[in-house]
Nucleic acid binder design. Sequence first.
RNA 1: GCGUCGGUGCCCGAGCGGCCCAAGGGAAGGGACUGCAAAUCCCUACAGUCGCGGGUUCAAAUCCCGCCCGGCGCUCCA
Length: 457
Amino acid sequence: MLRFYDTLSREKREFAPRKDGEVSLYACGPTVYDVPHLGHARTALTYDILVRFLRWQGHDVVYVANITDIDDNIIARAQRENSTEPEIAATYEAEYIRQLDRLGIEHPTHRTHATDYIAEMIGVIEVLLERKMAYTLDSGVYFDVSELDDYGALVHRTADDLRETAMARVEADDEKDDPLDFALWKAAKPGEPTWESPWGPGRPGWHIECVAMALGILGPGFDIHGGGSDLAFPHHENERAEAVATGQPFANTWIHSAMINVGGEKMSKSLNNFTTLADILDNHDPRVLRLLMLQTHYRKTMEVNGDALAAAAQALDRFNAFDRSAASAGVVASTPDQAILDEVIEAMNDDLGTPKALATTFETVRAANAAIAANDLELAASLKATLDEVLSVLGLAPAESAGDDEDSAAIDALVAERDEARANKDFETSDRIRDELAAQGIVIEDSPTGATWYRKK
RNA sequence: GCGUCGGUGCCCGAGCGGCCCAAGGGAAGGGACUGCAAAUCCCUACAGUCGCGGGUUCAAAUCCCGCCCGGCGCUCCA
């Protein structure tokens, strides 16, 4: 039985898509005004795994991931760099996608852009005004929180409670009726990009984007809404408020992925303590990051640092090493072991228990290695098939062997030369060759059938 | 302050009432294999107060209460 932890009800709930076998998912993506960091990767990875798992289990998944391509930060950067908002957004969106591609994050079914849904947003705002859930001021259109009875439900606070802290920071000239009210449409300010609307030129508020896109593409009562836990308030709370206020059911399940910390503090742009994704990916096999992240449950805050990456790199090598020894032993994947697969599925069914699934995977690697050592190739072939399947679902499948670059013939020759030296007990020569290759990042592994080599990344 | 999540071995990290003298990974020690390594396998040590103190229960890391500590949210944020 598949269960997810739902932020709204605060419990693990059995997951039943509104339409049998077809899952609708909406996950908030980034505002593209800077390069992606590790935090963006963790969130994207969470939903990537969710989608991969659901598809593996036979569900069709419609996955919408948005890109916020207009907002204060983008405008500010465009002005600072004497550029334009579309240019800034396009640049960083491309970078975001490029890095996610390296991490093996699959593309969503729809990657939507806020600026492509202005008309839909206006439509939603009109409904809200008609239903008297919003009001117009000179500075824009605002959502009227007092008209809603369960505002704050997603973060388990009462409106009064939220209002109290909000009061403390309302600016004196703020003309909103209630400090909790938030903008649906922001009236044009000089120098800012604008769109026409029934309330004059302006641009949309943040939350309305997601409502328009989620409801527009997935429809009312879609299955899952995801995002980073820092978006729960105010973003998701406000999305929910808007959607509910139109009279439509919104997300059935809310999933939030936890933050990445640096030295005990949240990694973020505003704290300027972030490590860019590119930085990590330039220096590590992308699967190292993936493995590291999947070893921690998605709802638990985690720390990413050099030690953790090194440990994950070591762990990942177990998969690689098995693949090498399977290849040299001539083990070809046969039929997966259903009992092991079931164990993995059970772990994943329980709110995406990737750490547990990986534990099973590592146990399988050991068993598979042992099978090869014991020359039980039939067992090894089945375990290899099992591993191939699981690792591919988790996005950890070994990269295609890039063995035929131009140097490989030369290396083959050296390895052969070393084999010969060893046969002649000329260990001085054989060790010299091994050291030379090691200096180039090439590792030699001896086996009864002769030496093989691979590049250490 | 309020809300929320968490505090498990040397490190990371599962577990969420009995199957736990607590998974898995990393690091450590020993053995096998090897000319020596690497890889692999086997074994060992490492949690025994599972933050602290109470309580519930035949039974608690797991439930309840209180306390201490930390993260996140309450402001743009993945």
